[in-house]
Amino acid sequence: MFERFTDEARRVVVLAQEEARDLQAEKIEPVHLLLALTRDQGRGGDVLRAVGVDPDGGRAALLRSGDPLDADALAAVGIDLDQVRAAAEAAFGPGALERRAAERSGHIAFADGSKRALEEALRYVLQLKTPRRQRAIDSGAVLAGLLAVGDPLVERVLRRLGCDAESLRERLGGASAA
């Protein structure tokens, strides 16, 4: 499938893996694709920059939106994360709860949402009214695919940055845009 990707789109995929590794994630999540797109120099990155989304802003928004140990969400089901953390640290030492599973050996797998984002990128390109031979998946298509999946964390990050999926879709254009 990657043979249909432009070089810049492939670079987005590589950058997404870098982001996932930097953030010590288990898998490459849709939000890592978003962060990668903020570093893209092609159409995908252009659209994000046009609405004020940049790499630093993206990272900062993610840190504030998406701590996987979501204290508020846990509190909603009656779990006090502070207490759990204190108990874990008492038994296993400082930072116990921050330890992840096995160290990454290099290759990180794609989460299902990320795989679907790339499939949606292909679907987006196939809908465009361009000649068959020009239907390469560029970084704009990757962004379109990402938005099509509607990952909650991606949407939270975009909202925190003051933009929304709909206006991004309009800027990208395509068969389904107005």
């Binding site: 288990e26 140990l69 846990l74 779990i79 994360l81 759990v84 874990a88 038994a91 296993f92 116990a96 709860l97 921050e98 330890r99 992840r100 599973a101």
Partner: peptide, 8 residues
């Protein structure tokens, strides 16, 4: 949370 505790 369960994953983290499982590691420990």
């Amino acid at each position: 949370l369960a994953d983290r505790l499982e590691v420990l």
